[in-house]
């Protein structure tokens, strides 16, 4: 019954040089229902949030965070990453029900 986890957006700089520290920016469509609001009948609307986000690069952890109910809908997450070599970033958003949305993003280095 959890709300759908929407299509994520991920953006990396257009040109990345080896050794450069870049910012990875992500945005995902989600209601982030706090569990503190009531519906018109006065009943609590059950909590339904993205509770965690992780990012790995070729299996190595890069960044992870726990999200809490005070975070707005459609959470925006940005974090730094040192691009040493080309490879794949794996990102995973997980909701309260344990459902996941995954995205693979290739890192390519400029010559």
């Amino acid at each position: 019954m959890a709300a759908p986890i929407g299509q994520p957006r991920v953006r990396l700089p257009a040109q990345i040089k080896a050794g450069e520290v870049i910012e990875i920016r992500t945005l995902i469509s989600h209601i982030m229902e706090t569990g503190q609001r009531r519906n018109q009948e006065g009943q609590i609307i059950p909590r339904d949030i993205i509770k965690s986000f992780t990012c790995t690069f070729e299996g190595q952890p890069v960044f992870s965070m726990d999200l809490h109910p005070a975070i707005s809908a459609n959470p925006y997450i940005a974090f730094p990453f040192k691009a040493e070599r080309a490879g794949n970033l794996e990102m995973v958003w997980t909701n309260d029900a344990g459902e996941q949305r995954k995205l693979t993003q290739a890192v390519r280095l400029a010559e």
Binding site: G6, Q7, R9, R11, R25, L27, S29, A73, N74, Y76
Partner: peptide
């Protein structure tokens, strides 16, 4: 345009 959540709707 990246951070603006309205672009989720645009897409």
């Amino acid at each position: 345009d990246f951070q603006n959540p309205a672009f989720l709707w645009v897409e």
